[in-house]
């Protein structure tokens, strides 16, 4: 089985996000870029599938810091790593890159394309259904367990309230991974150093073929706070206040 797994680099949104001067994007200059969480799970699931039944895993990374993440992917067990060139300092739109991923899936004779279920920059739509539709392959998003039995895949999908639905489909297919069957593994420094010698292939993007016809006009920060009260940042005074707030509601004793 040939597995293509897509790794998108996105800004660390736990940090402070500032708007760029054009008002239509965020200032990427000082941001930390990290692997999209869900893509990390997709990579793990690809490696788990390889370990379970044998597979060749090709990891393709897009965005700032792609090389670093590809070395990590190689250290975790990816057989081939490729960086997809993208416009510098632009947010990664899955709608834009879908055609490139589809072309690569064909070129690599992929049986399975895995990516994260979403990325927080994906305002124009999600990658798995775009790639699935472009290839006319079946696609399932929100996958949290994938079992391959030859070309037959069993995919479990999360619904609300902890309900899980399992589907059967035949490869080739595209899956949007929510959670890997096991938490993503850590790799040792020595493995990472060893993997740093893995040659990184380059791929040039294909035109998306889909007209955008929708555009971001402005970005803004949500109005902060709403009607909530800010108790500040001193843990002792906050604790005092919380005890009296809770006591007033009969949920604690002063």
């Amino acid at each position: 089985m040939n597995i293509l797994v897509v790794l998108r680099m996105i800004p660390d949104s736990a940090g402070e996000l500032q708007l760029a001067e054009d008002g239509r994007s965020i200032d990427r200059e000082w941001l930390d870029f990290q692997l999209n969480d869900f893509d990390d799970h997709a990579l793990e699931e690809a490696i788990l599938l390889k370990e379970a039944g044998g597979a060749k895993v090709t990891a393709v990374a897009v965005g700032e810091g792609a090389n670093r993440v590809l070395q990590m992917a190689a250290a975790r067990g990816a057989d081939e790593v490729v960086a997809l060139q993208c416009e510098e300092d632009a947010m990664i739109s899955s709608r834009e890159i879908a055609a490139s991923i589809a072309a690569m899936a064909r070129a690599k004779s992929a049986d399975l394309v895995l990516c994260g279920v979403q990325s927080s920059e994906d305002v124009f739509g999600q990658l798995a259904p775009y790639v699935g539709a472009l290839l006319d392959w079946p696609h399932v998003s929100g996958a949290n367990r994938i079992v391959a039995n030859g070309a037959v895949l069993r995919v479990t999908q999360e619904r609300g309230a902890g309900v899980a639905v399992t589907y059967e489909l035949a490869a080739p297919a595209v899956l949007g991974v929510q959670t890997a069957s096991k938490a993503p593994r850590y790799v040792s420094g020595s493995k990472l150093r060893e993997a740093s010698k893995t040659p990184i292939g380059r791929a040039t993007p294909e035109p998306s073929g889909l007209e955008r016809a929708a555009d971001i006009i402005t970005l803004r920060l949500p109005v902060q706070g709403g009607s909530g009260e800010n108790l500040g940042g001193n843990a002792e005074t906050v604790a005092d206040r919380l005890v009296s707030i809770l006591a007033a509601k009969g949920m604690a004793r002063n």
């Binding site: 736990a14 402070e16 996000l17 920060l221 949500p222 109005v223 902060q224 706070g225 709403g226 009607s227 909530g228 009260e229 800010n230 108790l231 500040g232 940042g233 001193n234 843990a235 002792e236 906050v238 604790a239 005092d240 206040r241 919380l242 005890v243 707030i245 604690a252 004793r253």
Partner: peptide, 29 residues
């Protein structure tokens, strides 16, 4: 993080370290 979106729905928000808060609140309770 004072910009965390959880504060948009919170009735009371605090920007202290959660470990400090848990320790202090636990003591008082």
């Amino acid at each position: 993080d004072p910009k965390a979106p959880i504060f948009n729905v919170a009735h009371y928000g605090a920007t202290c370290d959660l470990f400090d808060l848990v320790a202090n609140l636990s003591d008082r309770l």
